[in-house]
Design a protein around this nucleic acid. Structure first.
Lengths: 256, 256
DNA sequence: GTGCCGAGGTTGGCTGTACAACTTTTGCCA
DNA sequence: TGGCAAAAGTTGTACAGCCAACCTCGGCAC
């Protein structure tokens, strides 16, 4: 067992086993392409049942850290650190995790009736009210992204109370009990409009990397429908999928 | 139980349960935002143990079809069809699944020593030989993507034997025993170079959506390292992630 | 009506067992 | 030495049971 002294005791058992194994793998203990110990060995080592070890390994498998197939021990696929859900949904959390200094400023905030697409995405009655926020996100003061978010009023009212220059929106929301649990992302390319150009300091018509995102809370209720436009060269999105389980897909758009 | 007459008997039990539930959900049997029956109910309905039902539901959860939290029944998140691993790794499989007519033509195929990045990605000794293929992919004869793939020789030799105008490469490879099991994808934006412009019929310097992908086989050995450049407006990538398990991340690129 | 509390329902987490399916290694035999 | 068959090792699938944590809802007191 790895010596982590602080006996990672909180939370479920399988999580601490997974965390320990993840640490060992990213530290290179088993090498890239190396083999993990057998499940039964790990079970004995950690003093848990094989089922618990399997639960931990399933998480590593989903992260793309190890393979697994019948008959042979697991193989290490890569040793790179895997990011968390929060780092994808929250610009602030992500920026901090890569050592950058994130910032943000609300340019516009209005309350109005939702259009057809918005009410569908947020699963609201047609014409229900929503809060729309236009925000510029920065790294070290340099604008890199424009964010257009749409919230149902029960969330939007909380957002409206956050100071315009607050770094993070998700953190105060979380404190108010709004939890982001699931998110669907669509990534493609879009041309900067006049607003984008002004706010990002680029030319109108220049290509931007676009991420559209719908987030839901643990109950399954949509809490946010957002469109983010990144300056080229500032971010890249990475995904892992496997023949066993996959969540990513490629979508077609017909011309015209 | 849904009447699917053909008793989906092949393969593991939990898969057929998952397939049946997936079908019911996408058919809208429980509605969007509706609640699934309890695990114990499903177990009785399908005549399996609760553990098997949980295994099936875990798959739906990973696909982003349902939520799950302690204390309350599962909620349907969406009813859209989820695509398979193959549809993401193989342009041909994907195109067919959306009702398009895919095509492809090898423009260039060479065998040479790998550069530093290539040998690292394919986990080969520095300077080991690789096979590099430049290929244009079309939908209904219209070029939409340029694909630059690098293979280790044991795969490249098989690729070299495929006719230049073959629609699919992965299918003949699969027949030869080369199986794609895991893949890492990186998605960002890149400017078209002279080759891209010529092959896609766009202007040099125009922005393209880029997907870089490393695929590995079930043993964990890299089999392909590819860079695909799409014309804008032809595809969008979609991802689901959840606070429970996520495989996607956002990567930073420092300026300069 | 409003608020609190408790009962019942539901999923999460963990253990143990058994066997099937598959891979790797061993060892025998020609 | 080479090839083949058996044995050992390992993960996948399925079952059963138990308790904890948590949510929902009804009923009761105020």
């Amino acid at each position: 067992m790895r010596d982590d002294s602080g006996e990672r005791a909180r939370g479920p058992l399988y999580r601490s086993v997974a965390a320990d194994l993840r640490e060992a793998i990213t530290a290179g203990d088993y090498g890239s392409g190396g083999r993990l110990p057998a499940e039964s060995t790990l079970a004995e080592r950690y003093g848990v049942s094989r089922g618990t070890v399997r639960q931990a390994l399933a998480a590593l498998r989903a992260d793309g850290l190890v393979t697994s197939r019948r008959g042979t021990r697991r193989v290490v696929l890569g040793t790179t650190r895997v990011q968390s859900f929060a780092e994808l949904v929250s610009f602030t959390t992500w920026a901090r995790s890569v050592g950058e200094d994130p910032g943000g400023r609300v340019e516009q905030l209005e309350r109005r009736a939702a259009d057809a697409r918005e009410s569908e995405q947020l699963r609201l009655e047609p014409g229900a009210e929503v809060v729309v926020v236009l925000r510029v996100r920065t790294l070290s003061g340099r604008p890199v992204m424009v964010e257009r978010s749409v919230y149902p009023v029960w969330v939007g009212e909380l957002v409206a109370r956050i100071p315009a220059d607050a770094v993070s929106h998700t953190e105060p929301l979380q404190e108010q009990g709004v939890v982001f649990a699931d998110a669907d992302h669509t990534i493609d390319l879009v041309l900067a409009d006049a607003d984008d150009a002004r706010l990002l300091g680029c030319r109108a018509g220049e290509a931007l990397l676009r991420e559209r995102r719908r987030s839901t809370d643990p109950v399954g209720a949509p809490v946010e429908w957002s469109e983010d436009r990144y300056l080229p060269g500032t971010v890249a999105f990475t995904v892992h999928n496997s023949i066993a389980a996959s969540a990513l897909s490629r979508r077609h758009r017909r011309p015209h």
